[in-house]
Amino acid sequence: MASLEKTSREIQKLLKAMRLCYDVDTEYCDQTSVGDAVRQRALCADLTIVGPALLNDDKLGPFVINGSLFDTGKPVLVVPKGAEATLSPRRVLVGWDSRVEASRAVREALDLLSGAEEVCVALVDPKANYNGNGAEPGADIATYLTRHGARVSVDLLPSAGKPAATVLAQHAIDMSADMIVMGAYGSRRLRERIFGGVTRWIFDKPTLPLFLAR
Rank of each mutant, 00 (worst) to 15 (best):
T146Y: 03
M175L: 14
A2S: 07
V50S: 08
Q31R: 13
K74D: 02
P75D: 02
M182F: 01
T72E: 08
V181I: 15
T7C: 11
E27R: 10
H148W: 14
R200K: 14
E101A: 15
W96D: 10
A139W: 02
T32D: 14
S33Y: 12
P52C: 07
P209T: 09
M175G: 14
S3E: 13
G183T: 00
G134E: 05
K127G: 03
T166G: 11
L157M: 06
L20A: 12
G67D: 05
S103P: 07
R189M: 08
I202N: 08
A150K: 08
S3K: 11
F195H: 12
C29K: 14
R39H: 06
P209F: 08
G196C: 14
L113D: 05
D204T: 15
Y185L: 11
T199K: 08
C44I: 11
F195D: 01
G51I: 06
G35T: 13
I141E: 04
I202H: 01
L77R: 01
R104A: 09
D97T: 02
G197S: 11
T199L: 09
L54K: 08
A142Q: 12
I11A: 13
A122K: 03
L54I: 06
E101Q: 13
C120E: 06
C29T: 15
V181W: 10
G82H: 15
G82D: 11
C120A: 14
V79C: 14
P62N: 00
S88E: 04
A160K: 14
P137Y: 00
I173Y: 01
L212T: 09
T166C: 03
D140I: 07
E192Y: 00
G196H: 15
L93Q: 02
A85Q: 09
S88N: 10
R214M: 08
S103I: 06
K6Q: 10
D25W: 05
F63Y: 05
V124C: 03
D57I: 12
P209R: 04
A142E: 08
A213M: 10
A164G: 05
D178F: 01
V121G: 09
C29V: 15
M1N: 04
I173G: 09
L156G: 07
I65S: 03
